[in-house]
């Protein structure tokens, strides 16, 4: 890290690191923009951020590098992932543009902006790098140096940032808070309601015959008909109930047919069905 001394070039190691990681960072950034699923975007962005953390470290900003990893990649990106989960991790966006000309305008603007920035940087006289060596060692290290600045020169900004964080926290709570529109039921009321209601015991559990225990399969009543009460309300409303009451019968039929085929009892089977090959064929179709 002697490259942190005043210089116009960096060490070869840093150069190699820059070119490799820089490429990866750009790819990550592009992936963030171009991925259909937001979870992929988030992961790509996390990668880019880690690379940036490395670049901070390479630039002598040790504290920031660590903070970048801990706060950004660790906290903020995880927050993003939480929200992505909340919205639906499987949801894929269509990348088809709906606004007329938006994509070309956006690309044109971004490209122009990039060209302008790069031209500006290229034009600026930035040949001399003073390096951070002196600054980092003045107070005994990078962290101490930053602490010194934060609690002296930037103390007001720091305090105000604290206030900002508190405000943001409260704001987020307010935004996501849902006002209850009716009074919460007390335990007593709930128990009384239950006694007065139809179902004194707990609702029957889904799943029957120990063959299915999935939550979206209703339990069967003694006569074999499915009872929707056994399925949770959300699934009932979504209509995501799988009816398996006929499944075992169909399975049985298919098993019989297969065994019949194997034993060459087609005729007997046909006789049993009333000697009607056409209807037998239909039945076998239906069974499939």
């Amino acid at each position: 890290m002697n490259a942190l001394a005043a210089a116009t070039t960096t060490s070869t190691g840093e150069a190699i690191q820059f070119w490799i990681l820089g490429t990866v960072a750009v790819i990550g950034a592009l992936a963030t923009v171009l991925m259909k699923k937001s979870v992929h975007s988030a992961l790509s962005l996390a990668g880019t951020m880690i690379i940036l953390a490395v670049f901070y470290l390479a630039n002598g900003a040790y504290f920031l590098g660590i903070v970048q990893i801990v706060v950004y990649t660790g906290a903020i990106m995880m927050l993003f992932l939480f929200v992505v989960m909340l919205v639906g991790v499987t949801a894929a966006d269509s990348l088809k543009e709906t606004l007329k000309g938006q994509r070309w305008l956006a690309l044109g603007c971004a490209l122009g902006f990039a060209v302008l920035l790069i031209a500006g940087i290229g034009n600026a006289s930035l040949s001399t790098f003073n390096g951070l060596g002196a600054a980092n060692t003045r107070h005994g290290g990078n962290v101490e140096g930053i602490a010194n600045l934060i609690f002296t020169k930037y103390v007001f900004a720091f305090e105000i940032t604290g206030a900002l964080l508190i405000t943001a926290t409260v704001g987020a709570m307010v935004l996501t808070h849902r006002e209850r529109t009716e009074r919460a039921k007390t335990q007593r009321e709930m128990s009384e309601e239950r006694v007065r209601g139809k179902h004194l015991p707990p609702l029957p559990a889904p799943g029957v015959y120990a063959r299915h225990n999935a939550v979206d399969i209703p339990g069967l009543l003694p006569d074999g008909t499915p009872s929707e009460l056994t399925v949770m309300q959300t699934l009932r409303q979504r209509g995501q109930i799988r009816d398996v009451s006929q499944e075992s019968l169909a399975d049985l039929k298919a098993l019989e047919q297969r065994s019949g085929e194997r034993l060459g009892r087609e005729d007997a089977d046909a006789v049993a069905r009333g000697a009607d090959p056409a209807s037998a064929a239909e039945n076998s179709e239906a069974a499939k």
Binding site: T32, V33, L111, F113, L117, I118
Partner: peptide, 12 residues
């Protein structure tokens, strides 16, 4: 470059 990519992402 990263800024421009981010900006185009915001717009697109």
């Amino acid at each position: 470059l990263l800024f421009a990519i981010g900006a185009s992402g915001v717009l697109i």
